[in-house]
Simulated assay, not measured.
Amino acid sequence: MKLTPRLARLLINLWPPFLGAGIRVRAISSDWRDITVALKLRLGNRNYVGVHFGGSLYSMTDPFFMLMLMQNLGRDYIVWDKNGSIDYLKPGRGTVSARFTLDEATLAAIRANTANGDKYLPQLQVAVVDEQGEVVARVHKTLYVRKKQKRPGAAEAAAGALRDEAGTA
């Protein structure tokens, strides 16, 4: 079964860590190049001084670039989160959101840099904004991307074994 954006949105919104933190995926584009996530301030994600807990702000941004790359590059690629950091710029109050976008130039650079099987570490970032559009935090993500090496299929492996067997008999 193919993971459609609609099904992904439903599953992510029901995922216990996001559900418990109040993180909601608002939209996933049909081409997986645009995702919007929101987080309402509530008792369970507020810190000691009454603003968004920093861990919740980071959590709301964690998996999305990896998912977007996996869906856009396909099964021929290995994609992992390698590193992440967050710069807190101002207290987050009310509902905050993040909009992840992935453009063709980024995908082309990844494909070009991994064409020979080399790893590539693209650096992406997303802003977390409040209801007034002011940036509350900026999240920096480094991903690990490598094109999978081609393995001989079952037919080629069987043919090779037959050749080896015929040569020794």
Rank of each mutant, 00 (worst) to 15 (best):
Trp80Val: 03
Asp103Met: 13
Leu67Arg: 01
Asn13Ile: 02
Val37Tyr: 08
Leu73Phe: 08
Leu143Gly: 05
Pro63Ile: 11
Arg93Asn: 11
Ser30Gln: 12
Met1Thr: 13
Asp87Glu: 12
Asp130Leu: 04
Gly22Ser: 13
Gly92Thr: 13
Leu7His: 14
Glu104Ala: 15
Gly22Ala: 13
Leu67Thr: 01
Gly20Ser: 12
Trp32Met: 14
Thr142Arg: 07
Gly160His: 02
Ser56Val: 05
Ile86Gln: 04
Val79Thr: 04
Asp34Ala: 11
Gly117Met: 04
Trp80Leu: 11
Arg46Phe: 12
Thr101Glu: 15
His52Asn: 07
Ala27Ser: 14
Val49His: 05
Ala21Met: 11
Leu73His: 09
Lys119His: 07
Leu67Val: 12
Gln71Val: 00
Val135Ser: 10
Tyr48Ala: 15
Asp62Leu: 11
Phe65Cys: 11
Arg26Thr: 05
Gln132Pro: 07
Tyr88Gln: 01
Gly117Gln: 05
Ala158Cys: 03
Glu134Ile: 05
Leu121Glu: 03
Leu3His: 04
Asp130Arg: 03
Leu43Cys: 09
His140Val: 11
Ala8Trp: 04
Lys147Met: 05
Ala169Asp: 09
Tyr144Gly: 02
Gly50His: 04
Arg42Gly: 15
Gly133Asn: 12
Leu39Pro: 01
Val136Leu: 08
Arg24Asp: 02
Val79Arg: 00
Arg26Phe: 04
Phe53Trp: 14
Gln123His: 02
Gly167His: 01
Tyr144Trp: 06
Val96Lys: 08
Ala105Val: 13
Ala108Tyr: 02
Phe100Arg: 07
His52Arg: 04
Glu156Gln: 06
Phe18Gly: 06
Val25Gln: 06
Asn13Asp: 04
Glu156Asn: 00
Ala27Val: 00
Ala169Val: 14
Pro152Ile: 05
Leu89Arg: 13
Lys40Gly: 09
Arg111Cys: 03
Lys82Val: 03
Ile78Trp: 11
Ile78Met: 08
Arg163Cys: 05
Ala21Phe: 00
Leu107Met: 10
Ala154Lys: 02
Val49Pro: 06
Ser59Arg: 10
Thr142Asp: 05
Asp31Cys: 12
Asp118His: 10
Leu121Ser: 02
Arg163Pro: 00
Arg146Val: 01
Asp130Cys: 04
Thr4Asn: 11
Asp34Phe: 03
Ala105Asn: 12
Leu39Tyr: 02
Ile28Leu: 14
Thr142Ile: 02
Asp31Gln: 10
Ile28His: 15
Arg6Met: 10
Val37Trp: 09
Thr61Ile: 09
Trp32Val: 08
Ala137Ile: 08
Ala154Asp: 04
Pro122Trp: 15
Val129Trp: 03
Thr36Ile: 08
Leu69His: 09
Pro5Phe: 08
Leu102Gly: 05
Val79Ser: 02
Gly133Gln: 13
Ala155Met: 06
Arg75Asn: 12
Asp130Met: 06
Asp118Leu: 05
Phe53Ala: 06
Leu14Gln: 11
